[in-house]
């Protein structure tokens, strides 16, 4: 990864680009019913970044990812995803996994993933969907209804749904929550592989060691404010935990 090697030289966020920038937030604030959920968050994520967003529950991690997904608009500030603020062209490049699986209980895994592949205009949607399910190790349950699946399996189907159109930006909100060790390693592998192909990845979660191992950059939110933006290799699990206030 030559790009990631070159950005490691400067401080995170110091580099402002346009063509090479995946996510650019400038002074983004988001308030819901008068309550500030995000306050003046500014961050630039170059293409091909792997970023972990950390912070206590209610710090605004999920909202930050929703803003990046263009599902939610910012109250103030400027949001640019691949240079655009919103619209179908931007959405085509985004894949998202949230705490909720966004799957239909009554449909099978394959039907769910195929539906989203078709909506994204993926050629050969059904075979592509089957391939994704197999890559995530859930090919065997392709014809089972999502209703019957455990959280870990359903989460992997959700990841297949998010990756089926080959997104350039993957937003993974609490993707590891409720997964057993085997699923966790597999999901880590799939994320790393997507990153290796040039996909920009933003995850959020609570696991300090995992975030440091997987990502190259760590953002810490505290009550909606971005209080830390640092390269992962400059952090230790202890220092990051301390920064998070010993809660993680």
């Amino acid at each position: 990864m030559t790009t990631s090697a070159s950005i490691r030289l400067g401080r995170p966020g110091a580099r402002a680009g346009s063509a090479s920038t995946a996510v650019s937030l400038r002074g983004v604030s988001k308030s819901i019913d008068g309550r500030a959920v995000l306050s003046e968050v500014s961050v630039e994520l170059p293409r091909g970044s792997f970023v972990s967003v950390m912070g206590a529950n209610g710090a605004g991690k999920s909202t930050l990812l929703r803003v990046m997904s263009t599902l939610t608009g910012a109250t103030e500030g400027e949001v640019r995803i691949f240079g655009e603020s919103r619209g179908a062209a931007v959405r085509a490049k985004i894949g998202m996994v949230a705490h909720e699986t966004m799957l239909y209980d009554e449909l099978t895994a394959l039907e769910n993933v195929t539906l989203f592949a078709r909506l994204h205009g993926v050629p050969g949607a059904a075979s592509r969907a089957r391939l994704m399910l197999e890559q995530l190790g859930v090919g065997a349950v392709a014809h089972a209804a999502v209703r019957s699946m455990s959280r870990g399996v359903a989460q992997r189907v959700a990841l297949a749904r998010a990756l089926v159109h080959g997104p350039e930006l993957l937003l993974a909100d609490e993707v590891f929550a409720g997964l057993d060790v085997g699923s966790r390693e597999l999901v880590e592998g799939v994320l790393t592989e997507a990153w290796g192909k040039g996909c920009t990845i933003v995850t959020c979660g609570h696991d300090v060691e995992q975030s440091l191992r997987l990502s190259e950059r760590v953002l810490v939110l505290e009550r909606g404010r971005l209080v830390m933006d640092e390269w992962a290799h400059r952090l230790t699990a202890g220092s990051l935990r301390e920064r998070l206030g010993g809660r993680a």
Partner: peptide
Amino acid sequence: AVERQHGAMAGLLLAPVD
């Protein structure tokens, strides 16, 4: 209600369709 159950509406809204 089907769209609300597991937040599937968000998935639809993320699709690049009108």
